[in-house]
Design a protein around this nucleic acid. Structure first.
Ligand code: FES
Ligand code: FES
Lengths: 138, 138
DNA sequence: TATAAAGATACCATACCAGTATCATTATGT
DNA sequence: ACATAATGATACTGGTATGGTATCTTTATA
């Protein structure tokens, strides 16, 4: 099980890199070299962050990406939502069909409780706090 | 995302049914009728519970399954482990490859924290407590 | 005006999930 | 004895999501 998928993970790491770089423009090329990620995939990810207003992009030679909002205002929960949709520990969907017993499901209460805790933790975890407390050194 | 997959879910519901039935033997046939689950799939699930010592099975005519241990001693966390392996919110595995940066991953601390809470909640949630507090009525 | 960047989209391989399908074994009722 | 009704074991399968590629277009700069 992966609460965080690869694209979200790459997004987080790329954002951290951009913050730490202290440059006013970072290109995909530079990120690929610094973070060893597959270029085209990372590009798709950054484009999405651009569409969602997390990054601001500049086309053309010497172009690249810049943070559009401050890192204290970018939350991991938000990034997960962008790439994976609303955070849910249990979708109650199997094979495209929703559980018919969801109204009487005896598991739902406890799962909802865990889910609520999880969401609140992720929604209060910002990129800047990751950089402060994290083991970002190699 | 599904913290609980369909086989685990069916297993839990079947166990609850067996407890509530108060019979000393329940067959797959009866469970299928009572719970509207696909027969062969449920059979595979109950066989696994048998192998793992949760149920005791009896072959032959009038055969079926009986609880092998008391419902207070059967925990949801344990059932998840049986059908899905060790509970993890983040496997750090994508495409069969483990994250190379796991040693320096800035996300790991927080995820581990959420994971620990989740596991402890699931490991203390028994079948009997589900039956007591749950909305098991239709 | 060549170049180097991002934007947009279509495509693809693999793994996993939720099952089926079969055949073998074992106990029971008549 | 033997048909029947149950579980045991295991192989197979279709659909979907994930983690990517591959291409082509657009835009800015030196
Ligand atoms: S797990 Fe979906 S209704 Fe219980
Ligand atoms: S998510 Fe796996 S190492 Fe960070």
């Amino acid at each position: 099980m992966n609460l965080i998928t690869r694209n979200t993970d790459y997004a987080i790491r790329a954002l951290c890199y951009i913050v730490k770089s202290n440059k006013n423009m970072v290109s995909v090329r530079e990120l690929v070299e610094g973070l060893k990620m597959p270029g085209p995939f990372l590009r798709k990810i950054l484009q999405e962050l651009s569409r969602k207003g997390i990054l601001r992009s500049y086309k053309g030679k010497n172009g690249g990406f810049v943070l559009a909002i401050r890192p204290e205002k970018i939350y991991v929960g938000e990034l997960i939502e962008i790439f994976q949709g609303p955070i849910k520990l249990q979708e109650h969907i199997f094979r495209k069909k929703i559980c018919p017993e969801i109204k009487s499901c005896i598991l739902k209460k406890k799962i909802d409780e865990i889910e609520e805790y999880t969401i609140s933790e992720l929604n209060s975890l910002s990129i800047s706090s990751l950089l402060k407390t994290g083991r970002q050194d190699k």
